[in-house]
Design a protein around this nucleic acid. Structure first.
Lengths: 65, 65
DNA sequence: GCATAATGCAATTTATATGTGACATTTAGA
DNA sequence: TCTAAATGTCACATATAAATTGCATTATGC
C-alpha cells in the first residue's frame, strides 16, 4: 500500500524524490518504490529516511492508528 | 549494535527466540541475529515482531532518545 | 556434575532489496 | 501549448536479508 505520509513529509521539506534519495544515500528508484508501496525497505533505509525528514519510524512507517 | 529492547520485550512475554520466531513467521536465526545487531531486518519483519510483542517501531527499533 | 533447552555461529542456498541505465509518462511553469 | 522537471517503469546486475541445516557453546534446572 502507498506510503502517503512519506510522500507528504518529503514534499513538506520541499524535496524531490531524487533530492531525498541523494540525502538518504539510495537511488531515486528506491524512494519512488517505497512511496508506491512496491517494496519493503530495510530498517537502515527507513531510519535514514526518517532522520533526513525529521520524523520517527512510527510517524512514517508504523500503521495508521 | 545489540537490540537489548527487543530481547527484553521478548523475555517479558516469556518467549524463547524460537517461539517468537514461529509467531512472527521467521526462523530462530533471524530473531537471534536481529537481537545481536548482526543484521538489518526488513520493515515487514520489524512490524511483525512489534505486533507480536505489542510494541511499536519506535519502542523497539528507533534509536534511544 | 549431568541433562536439556536456549542461544550462538558457520556454510550454503534462495528470495528480494537495491543499483544502474534507459525510456515513457505525468506534472508544473513560462 | 511547449518545455523541462519529476515521476513511473522496465530489464538486468549485485548485494544482502532470510532460510536451512548442522554443530558448538552457554545457561538453567535436576
Amino acid at each position: 500500500m502507498k506510503n502517503i505520509r512519506l510522500k507528504m513529509a518529503r514534499i513538506e521539506m520541499d524535496l524531490s524524490q531524487e533530492e531525498l534519495a541523494k540525502k538518504v544515500g539510495v537511488t531515486r528508484q528506491t524512494i519512488g518504490l517505497i512511496e508506491l508501496g512496491k517494496y519493503n525497505p530495510t530498517l537502515s533505509v527507513c531510519i535514514a529516511i526518517c532522520k533526513t525528514l525529521n520524523k520517527t519510524l512510527d510517524e512514517l512507517f508504523w500503521e495508521q492508528s
